[in-house]
Simulated scan of single mutants.
Amino acid sequence: MKWILYVLAGWSTLVTSLFLASLSSNHLIQGLVMSGLVMPIILYLYQKFYRMTGVKPKTPVYSWKRLPHFISGVILAIALATLGFIIGDFQGWIDFEKWHPSEQWFIALTMNILFAFFYEALPEEFGLRGLLYDVLRYRFAAWLSVIFQTLLFVACTIAVAQIQALVGLAPGVSINLFYIILIFCFGICLQLLRLWTGSLWTSIGFHLAYLEIMRFAVSPHLKGLPPIITYHESVPIISHIISVCMMIIGGIIVSLVILGAKRFIRKSK
């Protein structure tokens, strides 16, 4: 039953680190606290887990040798989002007005990339799509491990919001049914990306690209960020719906197709 202890240790590390990071309003401090706490603990738990199972991969999913897959995740997110905008423009749902010069948004985008990488994409992927999935996979079938990991992802977000409310802080996110469904599907997508590439860096790249596309191209007004592009919507928030569906649902479909093709090839051999 040691695997349960590893799940609890990894999950509680993420929840505690997210809460402590949220105590500061400074993005730099938030990123340092989150990655500074999560990364060494998760890597330590990984080594303990490998000793428990007696099996350590020659090239772990988080190995630097798999870093090129980071670009694969970024490119896939950008390609799916671009396809969504093209479809929206073709259908008349989105009317593009202006591309803004890079000097208006480049610095803000660069700073936000650094913040999102160390505060969200890197530690969350190492903890959830990395350690927690691998521990669950040691005990369950792959499809059950994907679902259980994603439920832990949702529970982590809800737990942090509840702790923030208990101590009198404003929750970082608004927990509602739509948001729960969104992050559940997002968690499934990220886990499947890691599975077909065999690299945690794919989900890290996709996660990071998704955040920046949503913040600077789709809904920059929500966070007061400079937009990369401005456009008119025929239906309110249609661009948000299209982008989310194309990146998340599209990522799930692409991953399932590739996983299915790989399984078929293995069987045929």
Rank of each mutant, 00 (worst) to 15 (best):
I229S: 10
W201I: 10
L114C: 10
T150D: 02
L211T: 06
W201V: 11
I252L: 07
H100P: 08
A9P: 00
I86L: 14
K262R: 14
G205R: 00
P60T: 07
P220D: 13
L67W: 10
K269A: 09
T230Q: 14
P226L: 09
I258R: 01
M246P: 02
L122R: 02
P226W: 14
Y44S: 06
I41K: 01
I41T: 04
S102K: 08
I175M: 05
T13H: 02
I213M: 08
E212Y: 04
F148Y: 15
I71S: 13
H69F: 14
S219I: 10
V167N: 09
W196V: 00
M52Y: 15
V244L: 12
A141Y: 07
V7C: 03
K48V: 09
A155P: 13
I258C: 01
P220Q: 12
S35G: 01
I29A: 09
Q104P: 06
S234Y: 14
N112D: 15
G172D: 08
L14G: 05
C245N: 10
L128S: 07
G54E: 10
G205P: 12
V74I: 15
I253A: 03
L136N: 00
T230N: 12
G187C: 03
V254A: 03
L28N: 10
R215Q: 14
I42N: 01
L28E: 10
A261M: 06
H240I: 09
A142T: 15
P236Y: 13
I75Q: 01
A108P: 04
T197G: 03
E103S: 13
K269G: 11
I180P: 13
F148Q: 02
L43R: 00
A21E: 01
L122T: 04
G250T: 10
Y62D: 00
W93E: 00
T157V: 09
L192Y: 04
L190C: 11
I258P: 00
P226Q: 07
I258Y: 03
M39V: 15
L259S: 06
V61R: 07
F140I: 14
M34L: 06
L83H: 07
I183W: 11
I265T: 12
L83S: 10
R139T: 12
I158H: 03
Y179M: 09
I158V: 15
G88T: 04
F153G: 03
Q164G: 06
S203I: 10
S174V: 13
W64C: 05
I29K: 04
M1S: 13
R51V: 15
S22M: 08
L193W: 02
Y231L: 14
R137E: 05
L208T: 04
I163K: 04
K267D: 11
D95E: 05
L122A: 08
T13S: 01
I249M: 11
I147A: 05
S174C: 05
A142E: 11
G88L: 06
R129F: 06
L182T: 08
K267C: 10
Y6A: 02
I252V: 12
A217F: 11
H232N: 12
L5Y: 11
L76H: 05
I147E: 01
F216S: 00
S255P: 10
V38Q: 02
Q149K: 03
I229A: 12
A217N: 08
L28M: 13
Y133I: 04
I238A: 01
F19Y: 14
A261I: 11
P60H: 05
T82A: 08
W93K: 01
A217V: 15
K58W: 06
